[in-house]
Design a protein around this nucleic acid. Structure first.
Length: 343
DNA sequence: AACTGCGGCAACCGCAGTGGT
DNA sequence: AACCACTGCGGTTGCCGCAGT
């Protein structure tokens, strides 16, 4: 197999013996061949992973240990998921990134089968592209607010719509009735995002979807402290049902760096028969999870919004959510731009 | 058909952290 | 304490395919 050589660093590396070895030993770089993949997989199948440098040598691979490890973790590992990032995964990524920033590895831990590299690439290509289209910096408060208050609720909406469509076509309604009582709204006092699930408040209250970590200190759950956060009589009072995104934006100053006290007052669940179906089990540190084939008590509810049509869908020219969820993103951009235009 | 620009993604890089000696 | 090998992480690069012209 003819493989072009990979790029060569323009600097002489001297940080480790491994790097020197790489230069001295005619190690391969660039794309992996099928033969190399097989050799690596066979070796790991027989000997397990780890000790990557010796593994590379023993497996007869002319690669650095680093390269073998990366290839295994990002591509060859049997549990690696490939293909489009699902809506649920997008939502989780947005939420977790809002909390942890570029901690890709940490974020990836909450998306089974997804690698940090894949999530990083998703962020850099999709999310940063959207920021660019909206003409704002991906790190700006404006964009973060857009994510929190428009994009993420919109994702939820789309997830629910897809679930509804799926339900309608499969008749699987019995599987999605258990979570009916949950709602999804913001806490007006502490910028937190919570469910109002009947019993046992879900940990969603811990400022899920709120981006600025400084705003959140002590107020949201991490995997490390989730057991305490879910207790929650300390939930603040729930906001009154608000209305519409336009109301929200007419009041909210998305003007950067200014605390947007009114900003959270918009979101409330209204549509208890919309439920979410998820494909893989994923759990956010906030406590909401996505379970295969069914729902649990952490599922989301739909939010009403001015752009919704009579079918409870957003203004999308009649597009079918279930057709190709991934492709619908352009409508999100349209929506976000419309909303930002109203600010 | 040929060319060009761009987006997506696999792979590489440098550095920091960790554990063993 | 110092050194070393190894691992893991986040940032960056460059190849490749595709859409547009």
């Amino acid at each position: 197999m003819d493989v072009k050589p990979g790029r060569v660093s323009d600097t002489i590396r001297n940080s480790s013996e491994e790097d020197e070895d790489a230069m001295m030993m005619d190690l391969r770089r660039g794309p992996w061949t099928v033969e190399e993949d097989l050799a690596l997989m066979n070796y790991i199948a027989n000997h397990g992973e780890g000790r990557w440098n010796s593994l590379a040598r023993c497996a007869g691979l002319k690669r650095t240990g680093k390269s073998c490890r990366l290839r295994w973790l990002n591509y060859l590992r049997p549990d690696v998921r490939r293909g489009n990032i699902t809506l649920e995964e997008q939502l989780l990524i947005l939420e977790l990134h809002s909390r942890w920033g570029n901690r890709w590895s940490k974020i990836a831990q909450h998306l089974p089968g997804r690698t940090d590299n894949e999530i990083k690439n998703y962020w850099r290509t999709r999310v940063q592209k959207h920021a660019k289209q909206l003409k704002c910096d991906v790190n700006s408060k404006q964009f973060k607010d857009t994510m929190r208050y428009l994009w993420m609720p919109r994702l939820v909406e789309r997830i629910q719509a897809a679930a509804s469509a799926s339900t309608a076509t499969t008749g699987a309604s019995s599987s999605i009735t258990t979570a009916a009582a949950n709602t999804y709204h913001f806490n007006n006092n502490n910028n937190s995002f919570q469910t109002a699930a009947g019993a046992g408040h879900v940990a969603l209250q811990q400022a899920t979807l709120i981006g600025n970590n400084n705003d959140l200190a002590g107020s949201y759950t991490t995997p490390e402290n989730s057991s305490t956060a879910a207790s929650s009589d300390s939930f603040g009072t729930q906001v009154s049902p608000v209305s519409e995104l336009t109301d929200y934006y007419s009041n909210m100053s998305v003007n950067n760096n200014k605390p947007s006290s009114q900003a959270l007052d918009y979101f409330q669940a209204t549509n208890p028969h919309h439920q979410v179906g998820y494909h893989d089990s994923m759990t956010s540190p906030s406590g909401y999870s996505f379970n295969q084939g069914g729902l649990n008590s952490h599922s989301f509810q739909a939010a009403s919004a001015p752009e919704q049509n009579n079918n409870g869908q957003w203004g999308m020219d009649g597009g079918d959510f279930s057709d190709n969820l991934w492709n619908v993103e352009e409508s999100d951009m349209w929506f976000l731009q419309q909303q930002l235009g109203n600010i």
